[in-house]
Design a protein around this nucleic acid. Structure first.
Lengths: 211, 211
DNA sequence: CCCATAATGTTAGTGACTAACATTCTTGAT
DNA sequence: ATCAAGAATGTTAGTCACTAACATTATGGG
């Protein structure tokens, strides 16, 4: 989530649809940055892009989508699939994400930061941001299950990792000096706790195992 | 999130405000269950409760709030504060939540289940559910920081635990046979990984530490 | 150059939510 | 009981996100 590569059609002459899409995205981001997300109207974005409100919704199912849609899922999923299946699902997910984000090309960082920054500073987008992880979550769950995890565990692991990732991205957006990769690493370290720091071991709760 | 004790004013005669509130909640839940959340209109809830749409918004800032508002934060926070400060923040949060939910009284379970079930089966509520953890998240962050965690780590730990908790609640709502406490335990076990299952130790990423 | 179809526009409407102001209850002090 | 202050509710009018149905214009391949 939070990432869309506007320029991944570096092929031939951009078709009309592609040009309109690019104009919508650029207009939207600019307006969001200048006057805030909540204060920007879909109609205004459309007008700035030289198009009708109706057309906006032909490109995005919702206002938030202009900010939050992204195409990075396959990379995440592949990286998770590469983790050793001996690991518990949660750790496979954590380390897969670690690996995938380590590989994000430097040139993509500015636009990612732009988007994340808007999302981070807009309270009304908090929910939308997490909702937008929905697809990614499904993809991660599928991969974990394919590698032997239970549905139950896969869902929980996916939700938790994504939450940590998003929180890490938010932190990164606020820290101009931080690099993307290292920020993600630091975030995932918080949930991938080194054994040395875990003296008591997990509280495996003998008490209330399955009613 | 996802919990509101309608009946915690077992004191004297309920005031008018309390009666209206109770009617709104009951009408809302019933309609959501019978015809679905998206298919239920605020106007309809209000009408069923014998009140105006405007009045609904005097009690709830948004439609979702009827489902998602809750008063359990203080218990969570206290339980987290009780965890040993030697533990990393993430594990303190996990085990605090474990402890707090273990203590949820049996009689509260049916209404919690009712709410969670509606939230779980309504895709358009996914985002709202997580957004509604916002306050809880702030509270957890504050407690973790008070106990010595960095802001950065506290935010990430809080986000991840809450995600796991919500995912666990969703799983519980779907499994009629499961008890609340044991469901939460199982969910948290997924992220509080036993050492025995973590042969390699955390991937502490020598590579890209701080740019 | 022409036509199938993609891209866009128009109109009309629903539903969540807000603002401003008017009205009707409650309640506590007298 | 009474009466005023304040709480609870109603009314009206409006904004904004989003959808549906149908009409129009632009584009590109034959």
């Amino acid at each position: 989530m939070l990432v869309t590569n506007i320029l991944d059609m570096a092929t031939d002459a951009p078709t009309k649809r592609e040009r309109t899409l690019a104009r919508l995205i650029e207009s939207g981001l600019e307006l969001f940055e200048r006057q805030g997300y909540d204060e920007t109207t879909v109609a205004q974005i459309a007008r700035t892009a030289g198009v009708t409100e109706m057309t906006f919704f032909r490109y995005f199912p919702a206002k938030e989508s202009l900010l939050l849609d992204d195409p990075y899922d396959p990379l995440l999923v592949a990286a998770i699939g590469r983790q050793p299946t001996g690991l518990p699902p949660f750790l496979r997910a954590v380390r897969g994400i670690r690996e995938a984000w380590r590989a994000v090309p430097d040139p993509d960082q500015p636009i990612i930061r732009r988007r994340v920054r808007i999302a981070a500073k807009t309270p009304s987008l908090r929910g939308a941001t997490w909702k937008s992880t929905g697809n990614t979550e499904q993809a991660i769950v599928a991969q974990l299950v394919a590698d032997g995890a239970s549905d139950h565990d896969a869902h929980i692991a996916a939700a938790a990792v994504l939450a940590a990732l998003v929180a890490g991205l938010f932190a990164w957006a606020d820290d101009e000096s931080a690099g993307l990769a290292s920020s993600i690493e630091r975030a995932l370290d918080v949930v991938d706790v080194p054994d040395a720091l875990n003296p008591t071991g997990p509280a495996t709760s003998m008490e209330a195992r399955d009613a």
